[in-house]
Design a binder for these strands. Structure first.
Length: 424
RNA sequence: GGUGAGGUGGCUGAGUGGUCGAAAGCGGCGGUUUGCUAAACCGUUGUAGGGAUAAGACCCUACCGCAGGUUCGAAUCCUGUCCUCACCGCCA
């Protein structure tokens, strides 16, 4: 949520920065609601002050046993107006808040301008692109030959867009999760969290999934709760409505969770294989820090997301999202993309974002500054990483001429002696 | 699912219709004392919004989980709701 005071004082700047995202945002309407709301509140406050004074007087007179009917009548003469103003103020405040919740974050001043994904600059590339003496297979074919995933039976149970990992595939999925969690907790200073996967509505509002993207979420209990679309939601919201001492920051958390997404707007896209699923596993990194450190923490966070990929020996690149490709709540985002030899394309496996105080303001997450003032924290998160696409890149990259897949050594401790995925 | 108890400031916790934004303690901040540490003592310390101002000082309003209601007046009474805890039932 943007700061209404900031919008009031810098309406042109807000318009300009939002325009960089593309899309229409009615700042004028917010300003008008704000002016009307404040006018209504001011009148209400004056009447309340008068009522309070008269009520106090009535109390004092009654204590002395004197008559108070005259003063009671005076309060009654405008009590209807107070009720009216209360209703009006609440309505305007609600509308103003709704308008603010539907307005995305401002792109960071350093976020590269651009209309869409084609304008995203590549920041760095890791390792060289692997080459093969044969035509590399894509992951669907590999999974079939190696018996790693049963798509047909998954559909029987859950419908299209679901996968059922089997045999060494299931083992590899679990191994990767453990590898990622161990790396981040043992070497990178993250505290491990295993969060709830069912989320209350206000937490979904807190991180920005609601109210705008409800159709992408799996709702349960008549919209009172939702299946987690990412661990970002439960983990960041752990600290909602809290006032942290500055000394407690930064907070660095890592969590595994399955992620549930309807993918409402993308039916038919990437339907083959496990590139886009309604349920997938992800290890997520979350940081809560002060505004002064968030940009540096963001760089470190992105590096933390990249680290396991280089340890696995994978070819990837890091790009920065331009203003037109930025997510709703983010002010600055890096995406990490893995190379898929089978499809000869890049797969997005991580999105590393700095949200500034946008989420913190929505969820009332603050810290006490050195000057004693309460300020909103900054929140960040990065996938560290999404599992299915990592799975794809891994088996496609390390496939051999004989059809087997030779696993990277770093996974050895997690695979129980399995060094190679064999044909079945 | 049933019964009962409860949600008050950064934290603990008192407060059953008016003088309560709210006792007390802890913590924080400032100071005195102190060889250092500890302790003691004094003072100070909620949040948000609106208004005023060059900026402060300042004024007003709201907030005792949340939403309604009763009343001239609600932390306090009533209703609903969310959450927490305890016991019972059920259950991996």
């Amino acid at each position: 949520m943007l700061d209404i005071k900031f919008i009031r004082e810098n309406p042109e700047l807000v318009r300009e920065r939002l325009a960089l995202r593309g899309g229409e945002y009615d700042i004028q309407k917010i300003l008008e609601l704000d002016a009307a709301c404040r006018a209504s509140e001011t009148e209400l406050q004056k009447l309340n002050a008068e009522r309070n004074a008269l009520s106090k007087k009535i109390g004092a007179l009654r204590a002395k046993g004197e008559l108070t009917a005259e003063y009671e009548a005076r309060v009654k003469s405008f009590s209807a107006r107070i009720t009216e103003l209360e209703t009006e103020s609440a309505r305007l405040d609600g509308e103003r808040r709704a308008a603010l919740l539907a307005t995305p974050n401002l792109p960071h001043p350093l976020c590269p301008p651009g209309a869409n994904a084609s304008a995203n600059p590549v920041i760095r590339t890791h390792a060289v692109r692997p080459t093969y003496s044969f035509k590399p297979l894509d992951h669907v074919t590999l999974c079939e030959k190696l018996g790693l995933i049963d798509f047909e039976r998954a559909a029987k149970v859950a419908g299209s867009g679901f996968a059922c990992f089997t045999n060494a595939g299931a083992r590899l999925e679990r191994a990767l999760i453990n590898f990622l969690l161990d790396l981040q907790t043992r070497e990178r200073g993250y505290r491990e969290i295993s969060p709830p996967f069912i989320i209350r509505r206000d937490c979904m509002v807190g991180t920005g999934q609601l109210p705008k993207f409800e159709e992408d979420m799996y709702g349960i209990d008549e919209g009172a709760a939702f299946l987690a679309p990412t661990a970002e939601v439960p983990v960041t919201n752990l600290y909602r409505d809290e006032l942290m001492p500055a000394s407690a920051l930064p907070i660095k958390l890592v969590a595994y969770s399955p992620c549930f997404r309807r993918e409402a707007g993308s039916t038919g896209r990437d339907t083959r294989g496990i590139q886009r699923l309604h349920q997938f596993d992800k290890v997520e990194l979350v940081k809560i820090c002060t505004p002064e450190t968030s940009e540096a923490e963001h760089e470190l966070l992105t590096a933390d997301a990249e680290e396991p990929l280089s340890r696995l020996g994978l070819h990837f690149r890091t790009i920065e999202l331009c203003t037109g490709d930025l997510g709703f709540s983010a002010q600055k985002t890096f995406d990490i993309e893995l190379w898929s030899p089978g499809r000869e394309t890049w797969l997005e496996v991580s999105s590393s974002s700095n949200f500034g105080d946008y989420q913190a303001r929505r969820m009332n997450l603050r810290f006490k500054g050195d000057d004693g003032k309460n300020r909103f924290c900054h929140t960040l998160n990065a996938s560290g990483t999404a599992l299915p696409r990592l799975f794809i890149a891994l088996i496609e990259t390390f496939q051999q001429a004989d059809g087997t897949v030779l696993l990277p050594e770093v996974l050895a401790p997690y695979m129980g002696g399995v060094e190679r995925l064999l044909l079945c």
